[in-house]
Design a binder for these strands. Structure first.
Length: 1103
RNA sequence: GGGCCAAUAGCUCAGUCAGGUUGAGCGCUCGGCUGAUAACCGGGAGGCCCGCGGUUCAAAUCCGCGUUGGCCCA
C-alpha cells in the first residue's frame, strides 16, 4: 500500500475553500442565510490559527489528543474566539437576516451566578445560537436588575445600619452611591460568570436598570399608564416591613412557620345582653378594630355558659360552640336561641379596649356587625376586622364605606391614638393587649398558635399589614384586557399559561408601585404643594428627561441629569400658578424589569429599533417568574400600551439537588457552576442541563449524570477523531467532501438517510422549543447510529487502496455526517463544535456563523432505515446466540439462519444479507419461515403417566425422555412391551440441533451454526494470531505504517499448520516483512494463550 | 389553607397529551471487539410504574382521594 503523502505532511494547502461545503439548497420558505463575498472573510492565510488535533510535523501518535479533555478544548477555543472576534463575525454574518427580538430577563445584582442562573443563561444562549444559525438577526443584549431594597439591605448590613434613621444620618446621596457601587461590582462579577459558560451575548453593552436611558424607559411607560388613567393614589393595606419602613410587594414576602399568640376575645354587645366572641393571632390589631364580620348564611347560637358559679351570654357559630367553651373552661352551658348571621347585621358592640386606647374607630358605621365573604366556620365563626391592617378587612371596609383607622405609624409603632400603647412597636404590644383584655374581663382564652407567616424577603423581619398612602397602577381596571393578552402569547409549556398564569392574573390586585426608600427609580409624579389650590391638577407625571427639563422650575440638562434621588427631589414644577413637588417615593423594583422590552432598545431615547422590533419575540425564565417578570411585563405592557410586551415564553424549571430538594446554604447541598465546570467542563455542563426537559420541569442535579453526558460527548469526540489519521495519510480534505465522488455503499446511504431524519426530527422539536428533545435525538444518533454502527461498518474501508472508490465514499459520507452533526450540536456544545469544525474545515471564522443543517428529503430512504433496524435486531440476536454457543465473533461460523414469518423481516434480511454476513462473521445467511432442523424432544408428563401406568410409570418416563416426536408416536418400547402414549402424556420441546444455538429477536429467531471445520479453525486461529501481533504493535507504540519482522512458536502442531496456511494473510495484516514459524526470536517476545494453545510471538521493529 | 407541576429499575430520565406485553443511559455482573483502544459493543440480573379507590374488555397512561417533593399564592 502506498500513499501519496507522508503521514503527517500538511495536506491542507488547497487555496480556495468552499464556504459551508455541504449546505443544502435553501428551501423556498426558508430565510436565506446571508452569504457575503467570501473573499472578505478570513482566508487560509491565517491557517496557522487553525486547531490541530494531530501535530503536522514529524511527531508521533503519542501527541495525539486521543481523549476528549473539555478544559483543553474550552481554553483553546476561548482564546481562539477572542483572537478572531468570532462573536462579532457571527453577528455580522446574520446582520441582514430577519430580526428576532429576544429579551434577557435581568438577573438581580446582589449575588453571583448559581446553577439555576447558569442553566437559564445556557438555555438562552443555545436558543440564540440556534436562531442565528437558522437565519435570524438576534437581539442579544443582556440585562441587569440593579436597584431595589435587597441591595439597600446588603449595603445597610455592610455599613452596620439597622434603620432608616441611620441612612438619613449617613446621608442619602452617599448611601445611594454605596448601593450603586455594590450593584456595579456584582454586575462585573456576573458578567464574567455568564461568559464562563460560553454565553454569547452583547457583554460590552448590557442594559442596566440604573442607567439614565433605562430609567427613562420606566418613566415613559409609567407616564403612558398615567395617560390611560390607571395611576391612582390611595390608602391600601399593604405588606409592610417595619424594619425597612416601606411597603413591600406580595412577591417579596416569604413565608415561614412561626408561633403567634392565639386569643379569644369577648366584644360586649351594646343594647342587648351578651358578647360576640372573636379569635385572632394579632392582638395588636385589636386597637384598630372597626367591625366584626359574620357569615350571613351561617347559624349562630346564643349560649349561656357557666363557670365558677357565674354565667355569661356568648354568641358563637353553631359548629364552634363546644370547642370555644372548652377553651374558656366553662363547666356547663345551655343554648338560648339561634340566629343567622344576616340577622346579626347591625348589632353594635363596645370596643373592648375602651379606656386603654386614646382613640378607636367610633365613626359612622364602626363598632357594628357586617357580613363578609372571608368568614368561615372556624374558631368562633366571627371575625375581628380592622381595615387599617388586614387586606381583606380593608377591601370589605371600602365596600361598606367605612373610614380607615390606623393608630400605627410608619415605624410600626403606635401613635398617640394608641393611648397606653403609644410609642410601642406593634408586636411588642401583644402581651400588654392580652393583659389589658384580661383585666377588662374580655379575654376568653389566650394560647399559642403555630402557622405560616410572612417576613421580608431580605431582612427577615416579620411583616405587618398596614393601610398606608401608596401609589398604584390599577391593573384591576384592565383585567379583561390582561386576560385577552394572555391568549395572544404562546407559552412553552402551554399549561403554565392556561393554569398558573391565568389564575394569577385573574386574582391580581392593584399594583402598589411606591416604596418609601432610596435606591430605585424615583416616581416621576409631581403633586401640588397645596391640593386645594385653584386649578391644581391631581398630579403631573413626567415621561422623559427632555420633558423634565422643559417643565422644571430649575435648570435641568437632559443630557446629564441623574434621575436618582436625591438630585431629582428638589425639582419643582410650576404651572398655572400652582407649584408641584415630587412624591419622594421610588418605584417598586419590579417596575424596573417590567419595562425591559423598552429598556433593551433604549426607548424612548432611541425610537428606530423600537419601531422595528417591539414587542419581544421571546423571553426565557424559570417558573418562579410566572408571578414575577412574566406578570410584571404583562401588567406594565397592558397598562401602558394595551399590549403584551412579549409574544412567546419558555418557562424552565429549577436546579435542585439530587433528591429533588432545593439547593440551600443551610442544607449544604449547593453545587456551584464553577465546581461543575472544574469537574466536567463547560460543554458537558451545558449539554447536561440542556438534555433535561426545558419546559417547566425541575432538574435534580446529579454528578453521575454530568459525567455520563461527558462520556457521551467523548463518543462524539472519538467518532470525530477516528477518520483523521486515514484522511491525513491520503491527503483527503474533509472540507472538500463530495458525495458524488467515490462509491456509496448501503451503510453510507443508510447513515445519510438517518442524518436527514435526525435533522427533520430536530427541526420539529426546535419549532416547539423542545430543546432537550432535539439534543437527545442528536446524541442518540451519534452514539447509536454513527459510533455503534456506522464507524464499525466502515473501519475496513479506511485501509483500502489509496484511490479506492469505496473509501472515498466512506470519507465523503463520514465527513458529511461530521460536518452536519457538528453544526447540529453547536448551539449546545459550542466549544467542542468549534474545535471540531476548525480541524475539519475552518474556512469560516467560526462554526456558529454557519447555517443549521436542514433535512434533504432526497436523501431519506425510510425503507432502508427500516431494513437496517431489522438487521441490527438480527445482528444483536446473532451475537446473543454466539454467546450461548460459546463462539466468539473473531471466529467465523458456517451459517446463520433467520427464522421469521414476517415478510418484511425476511425482505430486509435478504436485502442486506452481505452486510449482515460481514457483521456477524458468517459464511452464509439463510432466511426461512420455519427452521425445519429443529428437533423436538419428548418430555414425559408424570402427572398423566403416573396414574395411568402405576408401577411401570418410572420406566416409561426414562424411556420417553429425549425421544423424538416420531419415536414416541410410533410407540415406546419398555422391556419388550410397547406402550401407546396419548398427547397428554408427552409434551415436546423444540430445540436446535447440535452445534446450533438460537436467540429470539422481535421479528423471529436467529440460529447460529457453530460447528467447526478445518477451514473455520484455520481462519479463527489466524485471526487470533493477527490480533495478538496487533496488540503487541500497539504496546510497542509503533507507527501505523512501521514494518516489522515476526517470528512465532506454536505449541500445537495442528494449530501451527493453520497458522502456516495463513502466513501471507497474517504477514500482510500486521505489516510483517518476514514471518518465521518455529521459534520466537526478536526484540519483544510474548507468550499468549489462544484457545488453550500457547503461542509465543516475537516482534522486531525495522527502521 | 389554595392553585399548578412532579413521583416509572440502585441512580438520572423517556413513555402519559391520542389507554393495548414498561424503555434508555449510567451503575452492577458476565462476555465480546480491538490500528477510535484509559475508547467501543453485546448478554444478564434488577420495576406491586408513590398509595388507595373508580371508569374500561383492557390503566404507568383517564377520573377521584391521599402521601412526598418543587414552584407560586394566602
Amino acid at each position: 500500500m502506498t500513499h501519496r503523502n507522508p503521514p503527517w505532511s500538511d495536506t491542507r494547502t488547497t487555496p480556495d475553500r468552499r464556504i459551508d461545503s455541504d449546505q443544502q439548497t435553501a428551501d423556498s420558505g426558508g430565510s436565506p442565510v446571508s452569504e457575503s463575498d467570501p473573499t472578505e472573510r478570513p482566508t487560509d492565510a491565517d491557517q496557522t490559527r487553525r486547531f490541530d488535533i494531530y501535530p503536522r510535523e514529524g511527531r508521533g501518535m503519542e501527541d495525539i489528543a486521543d481523549q476528549y479533555t473539555p478544559s483543553d478544548v474550552e481554553s483553546v477555543v476561548g482564546e481562539y474566539w477572542d483572537e478572531n472576534d468570532a462573536y462579532e463575525a457571527t453577528k455580522e454574518a446574520h446582520a441582514d437576516d430577519p430580526s428576532f427580538f429576544f429579551v434577557d430577563g435581568p438577573p438581580y445584582t446582589s449575588g453571583q451566578m448559581h446553577l439555576g442562573t447558569a442553566w437559564n443563561k445556557t438555555l438562552k444562549d443555545a436558543v440564540i445560537r440556534h436562531k442565528r444559525m437558522t437565519g435570524h438577526q438576534v437581539t442579544d443584549r443582556p440585562g441587569y436588575d440593579m436597584h431595589g431594597l435587597p441591595i439597600e439591605v446588603k449595603v445597610e448590613e455592610e455599613l452596620g445600619f439597622t434603620s432608616k434613621r441611620d441612612i438619613e444620618e449617613f446621608g442619602m446621596e452617599q448611601f445611594i452611591q454605596k448601593c450603586k457601587e455594590f450593584a456595579v461590582r456584582n454586575r462585573e462579577a456576573m458578567d464574567e460568570d455568564f461568559q464562563s459558560i460560553g454565553a454569547w451575548m452583547d457583554w460590552d453593552n448590557p442594559y442596566q436598570t440604573l442607567s439614565p436611558e433605562y430609567m427613562e424607559s420606566a418613566w415613559w411607560a409609567f407616564s403612558k399608564v398615567a395617560e390611560n388613567g390607571l395611576v391612582e393614589q390611595g390608602k391600601r393595606s399593604v405588606n409592610y416591613c417595619p424594619r425597612c419602613q416601606t411597603a413591600i410587594a406580595a412577591n417579596e414576602v416569604e413565608y415561614d412557620e412561626i408561633t403567634s399568640p392565639s386569643i379569644y376575645v369577648k366584644f360586649p354587645l351594646k343594647g342587648r345582653e351578651g358578647n360576640l366572641v372573636i379569635w385572632t393571632t394579632t392582638p395588636w390589631t385589636i386597637p384598630a378594630n372597626t367591625f366584626v364580620a359574620v357569615d350571613g348564611e351561617m347559624t349562630y347560637q346564643e349560649v349561656r355558659a357557666e363557670k365558677d358559679g357565674e354565667s355569661e351570654v356568648l354568641y358563637l357559630a353553631e359548629p364552634c360552640v363546644e370547642e370555644v367553651l372548652k377553651k374558656g373552661r366553662y363547666e356547663d352551658y345551655e343554648v338560648l336561641s339561634e340566629v343567622t348571621g344576616e340577622e346579626m347585621v347591625g348589632w353594635e358592640y363596645d370596643h373592648p379596649l375602651d379606656g386603654v386606647v386614646a382613640e378607636y374607630a367610633d365613626f359612622e358605621g364602626a363598632g357594628q356587625v357586617y357580613t363578609a365573604e372571608y368568614v368561615e366556620a372556624d374558631r368562633t365563626g366571627l371575625v375581628h376586622s380592622a381595615p387599617g391592617h388586614g387586606q381583606e378587612d380593608f377591601a370589605r371596609g371600602q365596600e361598606l364605606g367605612l373610614d380607615v383607622f390606623v393608630p400605627v405609624d410608619d415605624k410600626g409603632e403606635f401613635t398617640e391614638q394608641g393611648g397606653d400603647y403609644a410609642g410601642t412597636f406593634v408586636r411588642d404590644a401583644n402581651p400588654e393587649v392580652i393583659e389589658d383584655l384580661d383585666e377588662l374581663g374580655h379575654l376568653l382564652h389566650a394560647g399559642e398558635h403555630d402557622h405560616r407567616y410572612g417576613h421580608c424577603w431580605r431582612c427577615d423581619t416579620d411583616i405587618i399589614f398596614l393601610a398606608t398612602d401608596q401609589w398604584f397602577i390599577t391593573v384591576t381596571d384592565v383585567k379583561e384586557q390582561l386576560l385577552d393578552n394572555i391568549e395572544e402569547s404562546e407559552w412553552h409549556p402551554q399549561w403554565a399559561r392556561d393554569n398558573r398564569f391565568r389564575d394569577f392574573v385573574s386574582d391580581a390586585p392593584d399594583w402598589n408601585v411606591s416604596r418609601q426608600r432610596y435606591w430605585g427609580i424615583p416616581l416621576p409624579i409631581w403633586v401640588p404643594q397645596d391640593a386645594d389650590a385653584e386649578g391644581a391638577q391631581e398630579m403631573i407625571v413626567v415621561g422623559t428627561r427632555e420633558e423634565l427639563a422643559e417643565r422644571a422650575d430649575q435648570d435641568v440638562d437632559p443630557e446629564t441629569v441623574d434621575l436618582h434621588r436625591p438630585s431629582v427631589d428638589p425639582i419643582t414644577i410650576t404651572e398655572d400658578g400652582v407649584t408641584y413637588e415630587r412624591v419622594p417615593d421610588v418605584f417598586d423594583v419590579w417596575i424596573d424589569s417590567s419595562v425591559a422590552t423598552w429598556g433593551t432598545l433604549d426607548f424612548p431615547g432611541e425610537t428606530e429599533a423600537y419601531d422595528e422590533l417591539w414587542p419581544a419575540d421571546l423571553i426565557i425564565e424559570a417558573h418562579d417568574q410566572t408571578r414575577g417578570w412574566f406578570w410584571s411585563q404583562l401588567g406594565m405592557g397592558t397598562a401602558a400600551t394595551g399590549e403584551s410586551p412579549y409574544k412567546e415564553v419558555i418557562m424552565h424549571g429549577f436546579a435542585n439537588d439530587k433528591d429533588g430538594r432545593k439547593m440551600s446554604k443551610s442544607v449544604g447541598n449547593i453545587v456551584t457552576p464553577e465546581e461543575a465546570i472544574d469537574r466536567a467542563g463547560r460543554d458537558p455542563l451545558r449539554a447536561y442541563l440542556l438534555s433535561h426537559d426545558q419546559q417547566g420541569v425541575d432538574l435534580s442535579f446529579e454528578w453521575d449524570g454530568l459525567a455520563d453526558t461527558q462520556s457521551t460527548l467523548n463518543i462524539f469526540w472519538n467518532v470525530f477523531r477516528f477518520p483523521l489519521p486515514y484522511m491525513d495519510l491520503d491527503g483527503y480534505d474533509p472540507a472538500e467532501a463530495d458525495l458524488s465522488e467515490g462509491e456509496l455503499t448501503v451503510v453510507d446511504e443508510w447513515v445519510l438517510s438517518r442524518l436527514q431524519t435526525v435533522e427533520a426530527e430536530m427541526a420539529d422539536a426546535w419549532d416547539d422549543y423542545e430543546v432537550s428533545t432535539a439534543l437527545n435525538t442528536l446524541l442518540d444518533f451519534i452514539t447509536q447510529d454513527v459510533s455503534r454502527f456506522y464507524v464499525k461498518a466502515i473501519r475496513e474501508r479506511m485501509w483500502d487502496e489509496e484511490d479506492s472508490a469505496s473509501k472515498l465514499g466512506a470519507y465523503a459520507t463520514l465527513s458529511t455526517v461530521l460536518s452536519e452533526s457538528i453544526r447540529l450540536i453547536a448551539p449546545y456544545a459550542p466549544y467542542m463544535a468549534e474545535r471540531m469544525y476548525q480541524r475539519l474545515d475552518g474556512s469560516e471564522t467560526t462554526v456558529h456563523m454557519l447555517s443549521y443543517p436542514e433535512a434533504d428529503e432526497e436523501r431519506r430512504d425510510e425503507e432502508l432505515e427500516a431494513n437496517m433496524a431489522v438487521l441490527r435486531d438480527v445482528e444483536e440476536a446473532a451475537a446473543h446466540a454466539r454467546q450461548l454457543g460459546g463462539r466468539k465473533l473473531r471466529w467465523p461460523v458456517s451459517r446463520i439462519v433467520v427464522e421469521s414469518e414476517d415478510a418484511e423481516v425476511a425482505d430486509a434480511v435478504e436485502a442486506l444479507s452481505d452486510l449482515l454476513a460481514e457483521r456477524v462473521n458468517t459464511r452464509d445467511v439463510q432466511v426461512v419461515e420455519g427452521f425445519d432442523e429443529l428437533v423436538e424432544t419428548a418430555e414425559p408428563q408424570m402427572s398423566v403417566i403416573g396414574p395411568e401406568f402405576g408401577a411401570d410409570a418410572q420406566k416409561i418416563m426414562e424411556a420417553v425422555e429425549g425421544l423424538s416426536r416420531a419415536e414416541v408416536e410410533s410407540g415406546v418400547e419398555v422391556d419388550g412391551e410397547t406402550y401407546d402414549l396419548t398427547d397428554e402424556m408427552v409434551s415436546y420441546r423444540a430445540e436446535p440441533p447440535e452445534h446450533v444455538t438460537g436467540a429470539d429477536f422481535e421479528g423471529g429467531t436467529v440460529y447460529v451454526d457453530t460447528e467447526l471445520t478445518d477451514d473455520i479453525e484455520s481462519e479463527g486461529y489466524a485471526r487470533d494470531v493477527i490480533r495478538r501481533i496487533q496488540e503487541m504493535r500497539k504496546q510497542l507504540d509503533l507507527d501505523v505504517e512501521a514494518e516489522i519482522d515476526v517470528s512465532l512458536a506454536v505449541d500445537d502442531d495442528r494449530v501451527a499448520g493453520f497458522v502456516e496456511e495463513n502466513r501471507d494473510l497474517i504477514a500482510e495484516e500486521v505489516r510483517a516483512r518476514e514471518l518465521d514459524l518455529g521459534s520466537a526470536d526478536g526484540e519483544t517476545v510474548e507468550t499468549w494463550d489462544v484457545e488453550d494453545v500457547s503461542v509465543t510471538i516475537a516482534v522486531t521493529q525495522l527502521d
